[in-house]
Design a binder for these strands. Structure first.
Lengths: 334, 334
DNA sequence: GCTTGGCTTGCAAACCTATGCAAAAGGCGG
DNA sequence: CCGCCTTTTGCATAGGTTTGCAAGCCAAGC
């Protein structure tokens, strides 16, 4: 029933050294092998482990990274979360996680709580920051990296895939496939990723001598995508759709095949964006542009570490991904 | 460039009161409205927010809950995570998250790090604990609740669905559907959930005068499920399968329909377990037994809070869920 | 043997807040 | 105006660690 925590002082007493000696042994500072041995033995016997809270209080570094994530129903984010978790653990950091809607007041409150907890850095996954928040973090000296989302006005560090190029290559692929009536169900038009993919796609169509029949905002949600899909087919008679991410693309395919009785890709071609694991499942077999999660995560963590160590200034990183051709869209000959 | 944190002492100076007064205002202790006003004004002006680390150090409560989760590719867990996050935030707690394989040495290291961080409680989602770890947590006085996983030998608090009853009802449903050759692709047989569902299923079949043709371990993974599905069809000629969770059931359906060219449910019926959102998608339309995530999360958080407040002893909670009948299994007449 | 220089080591202050205790202030009836 | 009771306030300590500083130790070089 001894719930009391063992302190370095008790270890010191048992080992016959000073409390500082214990501290030095456990924080990796210089100490003779002789005392280190004594200390370790005493610690082992008492079951001592350093109190991270006290350490953080004095060093001013908590080794905690705040992670804010919006959409967990989109498989891209659980996967990213898993990778981020491992990458940060390798660097000796831990994740304090928050769920927040992409916009709205949640983010405000959440950032406050993160600052209260003295986190060493913040990663926002698909979450936008208001200027006020950005400024607040800057003033607190806490680095922020935006994962898979940009911020046009502010020069905030961010890691994304090359959305412009991606959209463009998808356009070229669909044009080469001989489609005549091409539509785009975009990601939320308030997000940089949604905008960039749409812009790249439109530019690609133009470059190939084609044009966009229609563009609807799918809001990154299944409901939005379903509604848009109906309109695309019934009103605009499209024969090909670029859908702003895989998560929506699955909803679109469900709607087309189930409710509307169409065949993919015979009646209509679908291309997504992300290449989440589910895209490879037989039920969807989705042609999509891959966002290289591993590279994006590495870049994010690397950038954050640099900023924490004061080695780098804010940067924007874009990573190219390949178009993964599967069975949901007509394949150009040759 | 004033990265220095504002302390309660500075606020006190500006407000013309003592540091304790500031502390009391922000920790909700008694204070006259007059001083409270002065303090809040000064704090506002300086941008002061209490340092949670220092607070935790002295109160001995960090208001952090450690969450260990194994499978993030199974949609059940992102959903649960989201709910847990919200439920805990409502109680004023925060989540420190760790990814760990269901068994193996990860868990060991992770628990240590959680203890180092002085978490107030631990939730393990589908992760088993060795006896040594259990004991360590007990000795540290840190409550642990196991979510969606039990531990047969130890009297550790846990929250699950009623897996025995669930398995039994699925068996009855399949028997009533007129199936003759019923197989079971189980969850990992080292897990209590996997065992209980299998046991309930077998009992249900016996009760209905039927018997299990074959049972194979799908290990909760897609690969395991795919392999098992092949063997079920090719070797055991099953006409109905209960698959230990939805995540595996999707893989089974992909394999049956794609690789083996079978029709579901005409050639073979499939029933899953969990009722993740994806089960309702047209591509799968999976008949499955629902695990009521909301209730399970509420129970988990409630249990943990009780334990933290010393109001309750360890308990095991089981929650009933309905069988959600969709299109992946023959529906009994009447 | 004494000086010089490099490691170790202990002392004590610092990090920032919460809180027990006693003193002060405020309210109220007599 | 006084005494009594309640509330508010300040003082000082505690919580567990890191770290600058100075003292101690030991070996090497003269």
């Amino acid at each position: 029933m001894s719930h009391r925590k063992v302190t370095s002082l008790e270890v010191a007493a048992k080992a016959g050294v000073s409390q500082s000696a214990v501290s030095r042994v456990f924080s990796g500072a210089s100490a003779s092998e002789k005392t280190a041995k004594k200390v370790r033995a005493a610690a082992q016997e008492l079951g001592y482990r350093p109190n991270v809270l006290a350490r953080s209080l004095i060093t001013g570094r908590s080794r905690i990274i705040g992670l804010i994530v919006a959409y967990l129903d989109n498989q891209f984010y659980p996967v990213a979360l898993e990778r981020l978790s491992h990458a940060l653990q390798e660097q000796g950091y831990h994740i304090m996680i928050f769920m927040a809607s992409a916009r709205g007041p949640d983010v405000d409150r959440v950032i406050n709580e993160l600052l209260d907890h003295q986190v060493d850095g913040i990663i926002t996954a698909s979450v936008g920051l208001t200027d006020a928040l950005t400024e607040r973090c800057e003033k607190a000296g806490i680095p922020v990296v935006m994962f898979n989302r940009g911020q046009q006005d502010r020069r905030m560090p961010e890691v994304t895939s090359d959305n412009l190029s991606g959209g463009k290559r998808i356009a070229e692929f669909l044009c080469a496939g001989g489609h005549e009536r091409i539509g785009h169900i975009s990601g939320w038009s308030g997000s940089s990723t949604g905008q960039d993919r749409a812009a790249g796609f439109a530019a690609g169509l133009r470059g190939a001598g084609s044009a966009l029949i229609a563009q609807l905002d799918g809001m990154y949600s299944r409901e939005g995508a379903v509604k848009a899909a109906r309109e695309m087919v019934e009103v605009h008679k499209t024969d090909a759709l670029f859908v702003g991410n895989d998560h929506m693309a699955f909803a679109v395919m469900d709607t087309l095949r189930g409710e509307l009785g169409l065949s993919v890709p015979d009646d209509i071609s679908i291309v997504g964006y992300d290449d989440v694991p589910m895209a490879a499942w037989a039920a969807y077999d989705l042609t999509t542009l891959r966002q290289p999660v591993n590279q994006m995560v590495s870049a994010t963590v690397g950038l954050l570490m640099d900023m924490i160590n004061g080695e780098s200034t804010a940067r924007k990183i874009q990573i190219q991904g390949p178009l993964v051709v599967r069975g949901s869209a007509k394949i150009p000959k040759g």
